[in-house]
């Protein structure tokens, strides 16, 4: 696996406070990673270090093969960052804002207009191009801010609390936008301490606590050594299923619900295939057998001690 974002031994200090304590991780391309943790865990500091806005005391930050600490300006050509408290030039039109960003992010003059139109189209603000930024609603400003960060088609997008202050409709729109950007090949990190906000679109999760990385997992599948969620759907009700699953040592948290069985299973894909074979051999008619997408809240709660969750 070639990591799109590769962080090694990152240390960042404030006087009397170690905000990032030897944080290391790697993220694959075309993923959306939820960066979660309680307030003050170091999420914003980590994002600012990845973006090359703050210099850590020690460690390495590589984005798409570029050493961010050595070449911060070069890395910005392939990265977009939306800070928690972003600003816009209220006196400029949406078009001027996007053209300015396209130019400052290194696009050639001939490409700038098309890039601005494209970014506006992707964020559904193409009909506002000649409107002054200062007259936009909060949701539209948020979309413009994201459009500015993706106008140069970055390979990596960093968003710090992007949904704060948005109404429910705008949040749904944001989720759709992020999923679309991922499908287009972008790697996204979204920081928030509101897990429900990240639930819809995250594929991976990083948990920070007290400046340390305490968990990293793929939300679509089980983490090595831990139990992943599985769902089994029967063709017809079958009494043999419950004792069969209860007899399996790696099965836990079994819930039977009519034709459906939900349970957690500790084991890799080979072990999962063997489990399915044993169920089929027992004569149980199986219609579906699949990994169940684990809820972010459940994953977060299972990954860290309860006291860390309290804000």
């Amino acid at each position: 696996m070639v990591a799109m974002i590769d962080i090694g031994g990152l240390v960042f200090d404030y006087p009397g406070l170690r905000a990032l304590d030897h944080v290391s991780f790697a993220l694959e391309a075309e993923t959306i990673t939820a960066l979660v943790g309680p307030n003050g865990a170091g999420k914003t500091t980590l994002l600012r270090c990845i973006a090359g806005l703050d210099a850590p005391f020690a460690g390495t930050v590589n984005v798409a093969g570029v050493d961010v600490l050595r070449e911060p300006r070069a890395s910005h050509r392939m990265m977009g960052f939306l800070p928690d408290s972003y600003g816009l030039y209220d006196e400029l039109s949406v078009r001027q804002c996007l053209l300015h960003c396209a130019a400052t992010l290194g696009l050639a003059r001939a490409e700038q207009a098309a890039a601005a139109e494209s970014a506006a189209g992707r964020l559904a603000i193409a009909d506002r191009m000649d409107q002054k930024t200062g007259t936009l609603s909060r949701g539209l400003r948020q979309r413009l801010a994201i459009a500015e960060t993706i106008v140069h088609r970055p390979r990596v997008l960093l968003l710090d609390e992007p949904a704060s202050g948005l109404d429910p409709e705008a949040r749904v729109g944001l989720a759709e936008t992020l999923r679309r950007l991922r499908e287009e090949g972008m790697t996204v990190i979204v920081s928030s301490h509101i897990l429900s906000e990240l639930e819809d679109y995250s594929t991976h999760m990083l948990v920070l606590r007290d400046g340390r990385l305490v968990d990293q997992r793929d939300l679509a599948g089980p983490v090595a050594g831990s139990a992943g969620a599985l769902r089994l759907r029967l063709v017809r009700p079958d009494e043999r299923l419950e004792p069969l699953l209860k007899a399996e040592p790696d099965v836990s948290a079994l819930i039977l619900d009519g034709l459906n069985a939900h349970f957690r299973f500790r084991g890799d894909e080979t072990a999962r295939a063997a489990l399915l074979r044993r169920i089929l051999d027992a004569g149980v008619a199986v219609a579906e057998f699949a990994a169940e997408r684990e809820g972010l809240q459940a994953a977060y709660m299972s990954g860290i001690p309860p006291k860390a969750v309290a804000n």
Binding site: P83, G87, C101
Partner: peptide, 14 residues
């Protein structure tokens, strides 16, 4: 004051 400086710092301008 406009909170635009971080975006400027994220640009690729020299």
């Amino acid at each position: 004051a406009q909170r635009t400086w971080d975006a400027q710092r994220m640009s690729a301008l020299g």
